[in-house]
């Protein structure tokens, strides 16, 4: 989304002098591929994609994405 908004000229640069707390943002979030200059955005929250499972039913903990596609039993 940021990449397309930048390409369309819809984003301006933030004045980071007005956002002193930005210096506490983890470094890994401040030069992302969609805006290497990191001038138009402040990263705030994030989450990961993973595999959730029912511990009471599944005998083995999933380890890789292949496990997402492995049949549990003949009917599931």
């Amino acid at each position: 989304m940021i990449e397309s908004l930048r390409a369309a000229g819809r984003l301006g640069d933030l004045n980071f002098q007005n956002i002193p707390n930005r210096k506490e943002v983890e470094d890994e979030f401040t030069a992302l591929p969609f805006d290497p200059s990191a001038s138009s955005y402040v990263p705030l929250t994030w989450r990961t994609v993973g595999i959730a499972y029912n511990v009471a039913i599944l005998d083995e903990t999933p380890r890789t994405w292949s496990d997402l596609f492995t049949p549990i039993s003949p009917d599931r």
Partner: peptide, 15 residues
């Protein structure tokens, strides 16, 4: 339960 698969994952970032 929740695991991050050993072969990698994605991060969804709110900006």
């Amino acid at each position: 339960g929740f695991v991050v698969p050993a072969d990698g994952t994605w991060i969804s970032l709110d900006c």
